[in-house]
Nucleic acid binder design. Structure first.
Length: 422
RNA sequence: GGAGAGGUGGCUGAGUGGCCUAAAGCGCCCGUUUGCUAAAUGGGUGUACCCCAAAAGGGUACCGUGAGUUCGAAUCUCAUCCUCUCCGCCA
């Protein structure tokens, strides 16, 4: 949600920003709804003030007195009018709220123009592919022992497509990755949280999954809970409707969770193997920052995610997402894509974003400056990192002619061996 | 799942239909006093929105949430969520 004052005071900024994002929004409807709403509020409040003062008079009158009776008749009419105006206010506010929610966040000035993912800018690349990709590399699903290590068929039997079992040393490698990611985040100053995997509708609304992405989440209908599509949801909502101390900013947290995504409507060859799953593991970095610092903090956040890929010796590139391709609530977004040497494709393993005050406004997360009024914080998040595609890149890039996979140095402390093979 | 008790400001906690503009205490902020600290003492201390060009000022709402009764609701009624105690079930 945008600051309502922006509409009134800087409508051109809003108009330009939305145009850059290629969103179709009826800004005139937003302005008109605000006008109607304010008029209704003023009318109601005047009527209510009148009623309040009359009631105060009545409080001092003897109950059965003629003057009391006269006033009573008069106030019955006033009361009906107040009720009517109150109803108008709530209708007007509902309309205004609905149209306001259709307005996306405004992209930052540093975000490049563009319409689709083809217009995203390559910000930087890391890693010498010739040196880091094994000549034996092949798509991970073609590795001889793949189906023993990551068992999709048993997953289908037990649950359905996209819910694989990781078996034996592969399960151990998954656990090593989680441990490694969390330890890296800890040393970068993020406080670890272990979060609920089901959230209520209020939480899913605050971070923006509802109402837009309702069909993308699994829904436990008996209790009206949603399975989290990312740790961002529970971790960000930790501070929902709270006022933080300015001195505590930036608050930095990291959470490991499984993530659940219905991914309705996606299928095909490019989603084979580990590329796209209904349940997957992810370590998520979340920050709550001072508004003046959020874009600096975004660069640091991206650096924190990049460092992990570097330590794993995985070549990657950083994309600066163009205005037409960044999400609805994002102001600026970088994607980290790892090179999967077997598939010879870039795979997105992290998306680092600054939501400015857009999400904080929905979620009611603010801070109290030393002097002055409370303000909304800026929220940021980024994966640090998503597991399956990192795992895919490790398996492909490090595949040896003998069919074993060399485990990156950084993981061995947690994995306990230097190769994996079935 | 059943029975009972409860949900009030940053915190504790009073308030059972009308000066509630929510007592009192604690905490916090600004003073005064005081070798320092402490103590004492005076004052202040929420959020959102509306009116006003702005400031000053004025107004409205908010006592878990939502409906209702009433001229008037923190207070009465209903629903709902949550917390605690006991019982049941259970990893």
């Amino acid at each position: 949600m945008l600051d309502p004052k922006l509409f009134r005071e800087q409508i051109d900024t809003v108009r330009k920003g939305i145009a850059r994002k290629k969103f179709q929004v009826d800004l005139e409807a937003v302005l008109a709804a605000d006008e109607v709403r304010r008029h209704a509020v003023a009318e109601f409040e005047n009527a209510r003030a009148l009623q309040n003062s009359a009631n105060k008079e009545m409080a001092t009158m003897p109950k059965g007195s003629p003057e009391f009776q006269a006033k009573l008749a008069e106030m019955k009419a006033a009361s009906a009018r107040v009720k009517e105006l109150e109803k108008k206010v709530s209708e007007a506010e509902e309309v205004w709220k609905q149209v306001s929610l259709t307005v996306p966040n405004i992209p930052h000035d540093s975000v490049p123009e563009g319409r689709t993912e083809n217009d995203n800018k390559v910000h930087s690349t890391w890693g010498d592919v010739d040196q880091l990709i094994s000549p034996a590399a092949k798509p991970h699903w073609d590795i001889a022992w793949f189906s023993k290590a990551i068992d999709f068929e048993r997953g289908v039997k037990v649950t359905g497509a996209g819910f694989p079992f990781y078996v034996g040393d592969m399960a151990r490698l998954v656990r090593a990755l989680i441990q490694f990611f969390l330890e890296e985040a800890n040393s970068a100053g993020y406080t670890e949280v272990h979060a609920p995997l089901l959230v209520n509708a209020a939480s899913a609304t605050a971070t923006g999954q509802l109402p837009d992405k309702e069909g993308q989440m699994y829904h436990a209908q008996t209790d009206d809970f949603y399975l989290i599509p990312t740790a961002e949801v529970p971790v960000t909502n930790f501070f929902r409707d709270e006022i933080l101390d300015e001195a505590s900013l930036p608050v930095k947290r990291v959470g490991y969770t499984p993530c659940f995504r219905r991914e309705a409507g996606s299928w095909g060859a490019h989603v084979r193997g580990l590329n796209r799953l209904h349940q997957f593991d992810k370590v998520e970095l979340v920050k709550w920052t001072h508004p003046n610092e959020s874009f600096n903090e975004l660069e640091k956040l991206r650096g924190d995610a990049e460092r992990i890929l570097q330590k794993l010796n995985l070549p990657y590139r950083v994309l600066l997402i163009c205005a037409g391709d960044i999400g609805f609530s994002h102001s600026k977004q970088y994607d980290l894509e790892v090179w999967a040497g077997g598939q010879k494709r870039w795979l997105e393993v992290s998306s680092c974003s600054n939501f400015t005050d857009f999400q904080a406004r929905r979620a009611g997360i603010r801070y109290r400056p030393k002097d002055g009024k409370v303000e909304y914080v800026h929220t940021l998040n980024g994966s640090g990192l998503g597991l399956p595609r990192v795992l895919a890149a490790i398996l492909e890039n490090n595949l040896q002619p003998d069919g074993s996979v060399v485990v990156p140095e950084a993981l061995r402390r947690w994995y306990g061996k230097d190769t994996i093979k079935f």
